[in-house]
Nucleic acid binder design. Structure first.
Lengths: 237, 237
DNA sequence: GCAAAACCTTGATCTCGATCAAGGCGGCGC
DNA sequence: GCGCCGCCTTGATCGAGATCAAGGTTTTGC
């Protein structure tokens, strides 16, 4: 195998491992031979922050960075309907009829697999299909959690829940440092679009949490959570 | 084959057909032999309106009736995070860690399949796994649509979108009469819990739509939509 | 058929978060 | 260094939808 393929195989392994964060693990389902085949068929992409990801019907492993999914109303109102923190798996290869946009929030590295290859591997290894199903159902659970937050939580509960979710995702991604102190990869506008609020309300609620001692903020984006339990009490569920 | 099994096989066929409403169709993936096997392993249940469905790790086909999925916050606030209109498929057999409750809104008939049987059939027929994945991704799309509605639409846009969604689901279920006149199987409280509003606001907005001529209401629950396009203009996207 | 209970509507008032407005901070180009 | 621009914060005011309140209508049980 050429060096090129070695590198890609390492990527595949890294990516498969990342899928285990949600549950199960893609790699576990596949034989070594299939991993090599996947590596040969895959392609690696580096995408700059702010760029839209192509909706080309491929499956992708997110190697590093953060991706957001946005749905727009006709007059420009925006709702963020999902985040992907590396390592995770973007598996929405069936044509999306809905006006949903996929965008890199930070610089992003990903590894994409043609749908045809994955489809064939599902035939060889049905466990892969179950794995993808499990992953999709995990995303569905997350989406439903956020529906409850959007519909029924107050602004400050939304902010507390959001910070906890980010902390958990950052923790799962195994970033340097502990998960209670992290660099928020989102602007206030992104947070507002995720929580169904305005940037002013987001800013005010963050300030309030800070003056209450529930969080610390350095340089706008550097957040630390001295007391997870205090946040949990504020998140409404 | 005994009559008992004949009846069940008919149910299975009906149910598989219903899955085609979202996309694809379970039946199409399976061989005749497997359908008979599924019929033998399945059990039929009649569930009264208002009863909670058991979360017993089975897959179920919804033969008739309407089912809601609710997520509760600790202080009793409620959010409905999904509806199933027959014919549809309830495929959430992996343990749900979240506080989500499944409840019959009307009297319901369903046919449930043990997880082990479906799992084995996925091994025999990987297309079944892909089909279930496609179904889950369809549910995910629906959930994301409602996230956008919950986060960014006004009360009257929410009501208009809701009525259109119900009309589409009733239409897909092939009920008697056309899809623009139907019996709403939900109370005002259910509608409010779905849209993140209060019952008073739901009532007011429905009254407003009626006085604007966009809808007609007889007997509280009997709704007709004389002008779908007028509703579409009001739904914000 | 009648009473009770559940459900729905409408009005008055209040409140949370949106909107409008002004200014601060930090990074970048020159 | 300086000015511009993007991003964030804070204050003042407004308004959509919540809450409180009262009464009407439909369903259910007997």
């Amino acid at each position: 195998m050429t060096a090129r393929h070695d590198v890609q195989q390492a990527d595949v392994l890294a990516i498969c491992k990342s899928c285990e964060t949600r549950q199960g693990g893609l790699c576990g389902a596949l034989k070594a031979r299939q991993l090599v085949e996947l590596a040969k068929a895959s392609s690696r992409h580096e995408i700059l922050a702010g760029t839209e990801l192509p909706n080309d019907g491929t499956y992708s492993s997110l190697l590093s960075g953060v991706v957001k999914l946005t749905r727009n109303l006709s007059d420009g109102r925006q709702q963020i309907v999902g985040f992907y923190f590396a390592p995770d798996f973007l598996g929405r290869p069936f044509e999306a009829k809905r006006p949903i946009k996929t965008e890199a929030l930070t610089n992003v590295a990903l590894c994409s697999f043609p749908r045809t290859v994955i489809d064939r591997m599902i035939d060889e290894t049905p466990e892969l299909g179950r794995q993808l199903l499990r992953h999709a159902l995990g995303e569905l659970d997350d989406a439903r959690d956020w529906m409850a937050a959007l519909g029924r939580k107050t602004a400050s509960e939304k902010i507390a829940s959001f910070l906890l979710m980010v902390a958990r995702n950052i923790a799962a991604s195994g970033h340097p440092g502990n998960s209670t102190s992290f660099d928020l990869p989102l602007t206030r506008a992104d947070i507002a679009d995720f929580l169904g609020l305005t940037i002013e309300t987001v800013s005010r609620e963050l300030s309030r949490l800070r003056s209450d001692g529930a969080i610390r903020i350095a340089n706008k984006r550097q957040i630390s959570l001295p007391s997870i339990s205090q946040l949990e009490q504020r998140c409404g569920d």
